[in-house]
Design a protein around this nucleic acid. Structure first.
Lengths: 178, 178
DNA sequence: CCGCTCATGTAACTGGTTACATGATTTA
DNA sequence: TAAATCATGTAACCAGTTACATGAGCGG
């Protein structure tokens, strides 16, 4: 217990729990297809990670054959479920609520290094990209609203709301600086 | 050129530029005192990093003595400034605008793993922490508004706006799930 | 003179990355 | 039958982390 799962380990455990039974390959695909490219879902990360979760008893493996072709099917053990629950909550750790890192914000921090026209270009550019992000996120929201699956929907809502907040912030910055 | 600075390298370069001249120790302190604990500012990260920036010609070092006590003062070179400018912008890279990672969001993604009362507790807890975060961020805004330094002020504004957006999102989640 | 801050640094570790490699099965 | 996909895995690397270690100078 108190295994202190990393963020990626928590996500993987959560995905296996959600899918019921799956291969490591399927987990990788989820990360690779995700619009958020924070984790690449590289084989070199996921395979050892799943093995780690298995050897610490949070996942259980079962071999499965289709002809000559082997695959390893994983599912969450009872301990794994407990561990997953304590990773999620209910006590929200300070650092999990803490201010998310924002690459755009770190650049605004040092925006003074640019000359005025480049600064204006930067802000205009950021605004355009955020507008596109909002369109995509809200489209995602609408398509998930119908599915009646609250959690993926809420994730999409979160993304959309953050994108809107960042847009409003960038516009405020533009007004202040230009 | 095209040195592909990491995020931490860009920040360090930016800080040295901002301070004009400083020691590695002073840079570490900035990270350690920062309310956002994304980088620890560990010696093992910063000292080798500053050396790296020096040996690639983005920083220039000068020794300085107070009695027996040595310190290395760094400043940004002309090349360093160019590099810093291209790290900041003006072209905003896709991934720098891309959706920030949010530890709270990844937990909401798997919130279904909790039982109903724990879920409610989680949301209430998150709400409280976000309220506190908003208070702190808005206090910071007010104190920075007076200084007439636009960039630190804008950073604080960004933090406050994101915190408000996350709060509104958590309340929406509460309404949907409880 | 004691403890704090200034200031520099290293060693072992960790959790990711990219890139490569293999081979079975399915689909066009 | 060729190309795509399913499925597994390793090796070298990288940019951080924690923990440790040393020592000068300064303020109470």
């Amino acid at each position: 217990m108190a295994t202190k799962l990393t963020e990626l380990e928590g996500c993987v455990l959560g995905l296996v729990w959600e899918m019921g039974t799956c291969t490591t390959y399927a987990i990788r695909k989820v990360f690779q297809r995700s619009p958020n490219p924070y984790w690449s879902g590289s084989a070199g990360a996921i395979y050892p990670l799943v093995r780690r979760l298995e050897s610490s008893g949070l996942l259980r493996a079962r071999e499965d054959y289709t002809g000559q072709r082997r695959r390893d099917l994983y599912e969450v053990t009872a301990r794994g479920l407990r561990e997953l629950r304590s990773w999620v909550g209910p006590r929200v750790l300070d650092w999990s609520v803490s201010i998310p890192v924002d690459l755009l914000r770190t650049r605004i921090r040092f925006l003074g290094v640019l000359k005025s026209p480049e600064r204006a270009e930067f802000l205009a550019n950021a605004e355009q990209q955020l507008l596109r992000q909002i369109r995509e996120a809200e489209k995602e929201c609408r398509s998930l609203e119908a599915t009646k699956e609250p959690y993926p929907y809420l994730v999409a809502r979160g993304v959309a709301k953050i994108a809107r907040a960042r847009l409003s912030w960038i516009r405020e910055a533009t007004a202040l600086l230009c």
